[in-house]
């Protein structure tokens, strides 16, 4: 009997059904991105855990991260100090917990700023063309030649380290990438018949840009933001390690390792703990970013 039913199904019907199935809703896309693979679920749980720790850092941390104690210098882990103490006798676990605030806030802030500035530059270059495009593309091409980390080091070297300078540094490092991607997407969408029709119909430029172009280039921008918040955390840690990021005595995972290196011969726990925290967070965010990319634009996924 089943065979008979199959016979009546024309190929057109089958194709139709496939098209219907391939058009998921927005919620469905998010659900598929985040909950389909177990590895992504774990990564998401890890990130949420770190966010909670960062938000409630003062409540969770057992000690004041800045309180020094001459009696407690370079202690190995114990019941009082789970990760031991550093060369000023500060509790490493408390510094780690407070340090997570720095890492996560940079991981969030700079990709958002870079996305905003980069998208404005890229859309302007792609939409208006002409000399605007030439100037922007030239500068972006040149900056893209630099690895983000190197660019960040060089800008930080020129500006010096403070909270807002680091935000500027990381934003500067990521802006070219956003500009290039949004320029390419804008060029592609500008060719679409509905945009050409809107231009021909005399719709005002800002309306075209915000109605038609910006919503349609959001997918790659979101993917980049996810991937680069991981890079941003890693780069902030590197800058802090080099002494040009978060400045002591404020804790950051990077400068915990920097301090740990000085005490390397007595206790290695600060190095191990700081590095593990960075690696785990960056790894989790990368996994989430990869999943979002796979769902949003399967073509560019490797």
């Amino acid at each position: 009997m089943t065979d008979l039913r199959m016979e009546e199904t024309s190929p057109e019907d089958l194709a139709q059904r496939e098209v219907l199935a391939a058009e998921p809703g927005r919620f469905d896309t998010v659900r598929r991105a985040l909950f389909e693979r177990p590895s992504t679920c774990i990564a998401l749980a890890v990130v949420i855990l770190f966010v909670i720790v960062a938000i409630f850092a003062p409540l969770i941390a057992p000690y004041d991260p800045l309180r020094q104690s001459i009696l407690q210098i370079n202690k190995l882990p114990s019941w009082e100090h789970w990760l031991g103490t550093d060369q000023f006798g500060r509790d490493v676990l408390s510094r780690m917990i407070h340090g997570s605030r720095n890492s996560l806030i940079f991981g969030l802030l700079s990709p958002v700023f870079a996305a905003c500035i980069g998208t404005i530059l890229g859309v302007s270059a792609g939409y208006f063309g002409g000399w605007i495009d030439r100037v922007i593309s030239r500068v972006v091409d040149m900056l893209m030649a630099f690895p983000e980390l190197l660019l960040a080091i060089l800008v930080a070297a020129a500006l010096g380290g403070s909270f807002w300078n680091i935000v500027v540094v990381l934003t500067a490092a990521f802006t070219p990438g956003f500009a290039r991607v949004s320029r390419a997407s804008t060029l592609a969408i500008k060719q679409e018949p509905y945009v050409e029709a809107a231009i021909a119909a005399g719709v005002r430029t800002p309306v075209i840009i915000f109605r038609h172009i910006v919503p349609n280039i959001m997918a790659p921008i979101v993917v980049l933001m996810a991937l680069w918040s991981a890079s941003s955390i890693r780069i902030e840690a590197t800058l802090s390690f080099l002494g040009i990021g978060t400045q002591p005595p404020n804790p950051s995972w990077g400068n915990i390792i920097r301090d740990g290196l000085n005490a390397m011969f007595t206790t290695q726990w600060p190095i191990v703990a700081g590095g593990l925290a960075i690696t785990i967070v960056v790894l989790s965010i990368s996994i989430i970013g990869d999943s979002i990319r796979d769902v949003l634009d399967p073509e560019t996924s490797q």
Binding site: D3, M6, E7, T9, S10, P11, L14
Partner: peptide, 28 residues
Amino acid sequence: PGSVPPAGTITQGCPFRARCPKRLDRCA
């Protein structure tokens, strides 16, 4: 008339029967 059925959609009988002017009961 019609088009080639995609592979796997016909599991029994002659695959051409849906488009065939001479089909018999046996073909299915």
